[in-house]
């Protein structure tokens, strides 16, 4: 990778750091689901804003990459906009909102609805990488449990959910078994997205900035959500479609549209929704005033965000 311009290293991190992080990434790819410690650097964002994902992205991004950043499925939220602008500034690479155009996608909370291909890499921002943490506070012990595949406590938690709520209550960051060996936290994506991780054709990298861990799911790796025989893993489903684009296969967010209790259910993946609308799909509320207003707002914000900071 070449130096972008004088003073600032390409991708913000110095070459030494990038080399160290790439080594961690390689190790993570070699041991699917295993959390590799790395010497995380201070980033010009606070923890919780995606510093882990940013360091991974910064270490693997090249001048020819096209970067997409999403937060809760949307390209137009503050966090996504800031990170996208940051990378444009420190690398000069092209950014995009279109899932199909991107080579690198840094994400918080979602996997895009549009299926990714083998030439794409998905980089997750991870707040809490340790899936055993809620049952075992000691880091030395959780490491030993991973080393010995001593995972009984994971089902203790699921049992507890069913006994207290009648079902497994965990709706996001739903624990998975990777490659039949390591239990892994998939980051706070909705469990709706868990099946997309299994046997995926694309590389998945996970970066936790505060806890300084990197882990990975290489292409075509088995990723199985933990469950019971009589309480099998199930994804969320809706008895309605996206109010704007009519999609019945996408993860829906509830959006409050006025002060009178008006609500719309729309795709959380803004690019997916926009793409469908552009292709002529219409949801039940597309023609309504609220729907039109929401659609207009999303487009405007998106345009604004994209325009901002363009070199």
């Amino acid at each position: 990778m070449t130096q972008h311009d004088s003073g600032v290293t390409f991708g913000y991190l110095d070459e030494q750091t990038k080399r160290m992080i790439r080594r961690a990434v390689l190790k993570a790819v070699a041991i699917p689901g295993y959390q590799v410690p790395f010497a995380g650097r201070e980033m010009p964002l606070p923890y919780g804003w995606g510093t882990g994902g940013i360091q991974v992205t910064a270490s693997i991004i090249g001048p020819d990459d096209v970067l997409k950043v999403i937060d809760q499925g949307a390209d137009d939220t503050t966090n996504a906009v800031s990170i996208r602008r940051f990378f444009r500034r420190v690398t000069g690479v092209r950014t995009t909102e279109h899932t199909t155009e991107a080579t690198l996608i840094q994400t918080r909370h979602r996997i895009p609805e549009t299926p990714l291909g083998p030439d794409q890499i998905l980089i997750y921002q991870v707040p809490i990488p340790e899936p055993l943490r809620f049952m075992e506070a000691r880091e030395t012990e959780t490491r030993r449990m991973h080393a010995l595949a001593d995972y009984g406590v994971m089902h203790v938690k699921l049992y507890e959910d069913i006994s207290q709520y009648g079902r497994i209550a965990k709706a996001y960051d739903y624990p998975v078994m990777v490659n039949g060996r390591y239990v892994m936290a998939p980051s706070p994506i909705p469990k709706f997205d868990n099946p997309k991780m299994h046997d995926a054709p694309f590389l998945q990298l996970f970066g936790a900035g505060r806890e300084k861990r990197i882990y990975a799911v290489p292409p075509h790796t088995s990723v199985v959500s933990l469950d019971f025989e009589d309480h099998p893993f199930e994804v969320q489903s809706w008895d309605r479609v996206c109010d704007l684009c009519g999609a019945d296969d996408s993860y829906l967010d509830e959006v409050v549209t006025d002060d009178a209790g008006g609500r719309l259910f729309v795709c959380s993946d803004s690019d997916y929704c926009a793409g469908r609308r552009a292709a002529g799909h219409e949801g039940p509320a597309a023609a309504s005033a609220a729907g039109a207003a929401l659609s207009e707002t999303m487009t405007a914000v998106s345009r604004e965000a994209d325009g901002e900071g363009t070199p």
Partner: peptide
């Protein structure tokens, strides 16, 4: 204990 050694029927 049963779950730790593979019991998977709630």
């Amino acid at each position: 204990r049963p779950m730790a050694v593979g019991a998977r029927h709630y």
